[in-house]
C-alpha cells in the first residue's frame, strides 16, 4: 500500500509538472508514461496494476480526456511490459531507453485503438501518428535526463561516509 501511495504521490508531482510545461511546446514529454514503464519493470501486478490504472486516471483528471482512457491505456501498457519484464536486464540503461521508444509506440497504438474502437473519436489517430516521432524523441530525452539524475544520485550516496 505504501509503495502504491508513493507511486501515486510521485505521479501527482510529475502530472503537475506536465501541466506547468509551457503550452508553446509542441510536444510535451509523457512523464507518467515513463513512471508506468518503471512500474512495469519493477512492480508486481498486485501493486503495479492498480498503480498503473490510477496513474492513468490521474493523467485523465489533469487533462481534457474522459476519465479512464489513460487508465485503460496505461494498464494495458503495464501488463504488456510486465509480461516481458522477466526476460529483460533491468540494470541496463540502453535497454531502458529501448523500452521507452517501444513503450511510446505501444502507448500510441493502444491509444489509437481505444479511441477509435471504443469511443469513435474522429481523427485523433492522425494527430497521434503525426506527433509520434517527436513524442518518441522527447520521451527519450526525458528518460535520459532521469537516468542521468538517478545515476548521479546513486554515486553521491555511495560517496557519503557511513
Amino acid at each position: 500500500m505504501k509503495t502504491l501511495l508513493a507511486y501515486l504521490a510521485l505521479g501527482l508531482l510529475l502530472a503537475v509538472a506536465e501541466t506547468l510545461l509551457p503550452s508553446a511546446l509542441a510536444t510535451k514529454p509523457h512523464l507518467l508514461l515513463l513512471l508506468v514503464m518503471m512500474l512495469g519493470v519493477q512492480q508486481k501486478i498486485a501493486v503495479g496494476g492498480p498503480a498503473a490504472w490510477l496513474l492513468g486516471c490521474l493523467q485523465d483528471s489533469l487533462s481534457g480526456t474522459c476519465l479512464g482512457l489513460h487508465g485503460l491505456v496505461y494498464l494495458i501498457l503495464y501488463l504488456s511490459l510486465r509480461s516481458v519484464a522477466g526476460l529483460l536486464n533491468r540494470e541496463s540503461p540502453v535497454l531502458m531507453l529501448f523500452l521507452v521508444i517501444s513503450g511510446t509506440l505501444l502507448q500510441a497504438l493502444i491509444m489509437i485503438f481505444t479511441l477509435g474502437f471504443l469511443a469513435e473519436h474522429g481523427t485523433y489517430w492522425r494527430q497521434i501518428l503525426a506527433g509520434l516521432p517527436a513524442q518518441v524523441l522527447v520521451n527519450l530525452l526525458a528518460a535520459l535526463f532521469f537516468l542521468q539524475a538517478s545515476f548521479l544520485l546513486h554515486r553521491a550516496r555511495r560517496r557519503r561516509p557511513l
Partner: peptide, 26 residues
C-alpha cells in the same frame, strides 16, 4: 483489472460532462 478499467472507461464515456469525485480530489 482489464475488465474493471474497461467498465470505468465505458461508463465515463456515457457521462462525460460530470466531474467525478476522483477527478475533484486530484
Amino acid at each position: 483489472l482489464i475488465i474493471f478499467a474497461l467498465l470505468v472507461y465505458s461508463s465515463r464515456l456515457r457521462k462525460q460532462p460530470e466531474t467525478t469525485l476522483f477527478e475533484k480530489t486530484i
